[in-house]
Design a binder for these strands. Structure first.
Lengths: 190, 190
DNA sequence: CGAGGATGTTAACGGCGGCTCACGCCACTC
DNA sequence: GAGTGGCGTGAGCCGCCGTTAACATCCTCG
């Protein structure tokens, strides 16, 4: 091919391919050559775009946590906590269904990251959880934050189970997960 | 120590230690020496008890899937599908809270297994899901099995999120997860 | 008490995989 | 058209890791 369309950014191709591989085999189960082959280049060419294999994972995970946190914050702060929670659920369901590989990698390979990046990602994740906890506590005054935190984690688990599912149509799946998550969280008042 | 209590079965110590390591770092992220060190022996002594590193994972995963399936089958077949479902939820919550490492490894490292063992485990997992699907379909006549399957997976995700949670007391956590899972599954009728 | 088997140890091999290096292309600009 | 810089390749180094081998120890039993 005579440079049909000069790829604008190889980096994103690599990130997407690596996400798919990492999601299936785990960070340590995927080689540099595997990632390269998945985007049509072979082996060490990757070092023209990233400082190393771990840098690929780092950029992937910081991107996910930044996106989730930013999207979550955009959707709260309304007058009605119930509506806020509804938007949070919709946001998370949409992200998980749209990016199953990323959701899997984030849940799975965070500990393969070196301390500096890992701490950064953990911080964002913690902040994202607190967004949910705040809304839950506003919705149910008197609810202990530790209980709200456990409930939020459970809701994430429910929604993130997407990748393992025999997928229904996207619309049906969105609707099902949304309703199940809402029902589960409604149970949190005690 | 002058052989205080000769360890009856090293194998189970190794399995437990390996489960903890695998859960944290992934199968490929843990070395033979790491596992050995965790039980007080060093390195290749492991080969006195297992044919190799993969054999450890294989025994772990087949054990989990056998246990889950057997426990699930014991708890269904009553006259009341709602009571069956309740027992299934209680069973799964108890297992997940009692064995967070195993739950993590099962969800994470199945693809690191060679074909023969992997297929065996997959078969058991599939059968276990069908136990849930059967109960859901008896409880909600007319429910499509594919929808029931998606709902079951979502419930597993909710319950299995345990390891990532800042744990409440065991009793409170059991109660919370049980109620959330029940509420989520009740939403499945459409 | 001496043979044998279960359980460990250290040393060493062999392959794999991440990473570096030296080099080849183009595309674009003075 | 020669220089420059982005992008890719193939060869090779080096360290890690799963596995094997050769050798110790100790308990058990005839």
């Amino acid at each position: 091919m005579a440079t049909p369309t000069r790829e604008p950014n190889r980096r994103e191709q690599i990130l997407a391919a690596a996400a798919a591989k990492f999601a299936r085999y785990g960070f340590h189960g995927v080689g540099i050559d595997d990632i390269g082959a998945a985007v049509g280049i072979s082996g060490p060419a990757l070092y023209r775009h990233f400082r190393g294999k771990e840098a690929v994972l780092a950029e992937m995970l910081t991107g996910i946590s930044d996106t989730l946190l930013a999207g979550g914050r955009e959707r709260v702060g309304g007058e009605d906590p119930a509506a806020d929670l509804d938007r949070l659920v919709a946001w998370h369901v949409g992200f998980a269904l749209g990016n199953p590989d990323l959701i899997t990698v984030q849940a799975r390979d965070l500990d393969s990251l070196g301390s500096p990046d890992r701490n950064r990602v953990r911080e964002r994740q913690r902040a994202y959880v607190e967004v949910w906890v705040d809304v839950l506590c506003r919705l149910h005054p008197g609810l202990a934050r530790s209980t709200a935190r456990a409930a939020a984690h459970a809701a994430f688990g429910l929604i993130n189970s997407t990748p393992h599912s025999t997928r229904l149509s996207s619309g049906a799946m969105t609707d099902l997960l949304h309703r199940m998550a809402r029902a589960a969280l409604a149970e949190v008042t005690g």
